[in-house]
Amino acid sequence: MITLENVSFAYADQGPSVQDVSFRLEKGEFAAILGANGAGKTTTVRLMDGLLKPTSGRVLINDMDTVKSQVSERARKVGFLFQNPDRQICKNTVREEILFGLRTVRGDEGEEALQARTDEVLKDFHFTGDEEPFSLSRGQRQRVALASILAVEPEILILDEPTTGLDYLECCHIMDRIRKMNEEKQVTVIMVCHDMEVVLDYARRALVMAGGRLLADGPVKEIFRNTELMEKASILPPQMIGLGLRLGDGFENADTPEGMAEAVMARRGKGGAGA
């Protein structure tokens, strides 16, 4: 689990970009950080992995202060998927890429075990292993990056806009895989994401940021239904929630097209209106 205690951060020559943020993420949670450009989301997730050190306050990963150990030492526990997979991929084949990540943080397990683990991951992600990452599409490269991170089986997964530049199917591939890890292996997930439909579909908890401060923290659907909060954070809620709020009158509980359609049909049944 990760704990932020009154964390503030300011880049050199600039005003504070994160101010007095506190929250605690328990094992197995799936949280999303929401907010407009410049709200401090990316800075916050970078602080969570210790890629940035807080100017004041503390960040604890499993009760260990991030300033007391190096980022690279934590890679076994914390996986970080960046927006741009090309900064991560450095090997010529997918197999080597996955092996590279494993050797770096699980080198002590012996080559045989790592090869076996690689085979397992390749199969899981439907790669042959001989693909050359740089000739794959952006979405495929993002999958390679994700595969090599999940291969080491981290306890915590941090995602910084993992679906930017991906098409719908690629986005679903990535997010479904992450959900599977979250549900089956209790991996704690925290992500920054601009697509509110994706947030609604996958995350259970939402942290809302604006101007470097944490405005709200709660269950995703509750957060999206807080019109005043959404306005303040410059967020447009997902369509079905927006529609439910417009309709009111019991419809605000629907959050998917299926749910909304059912609610409409149920009302028609009661009211006795004909087709």
Binding site: L51, F82, R87
Partner: peptide, 16 residues
């Protein structure tokens, strides 16, 4: 620096 950050995060000990 972006590449180094990404590599550090996956365990390459640039920070040491």
């Amino acid at each position: 620096s972006g590449i180094m950050e990404a590599q550090t995060a996956r365990g390459v000990a640039f920070d040491k």
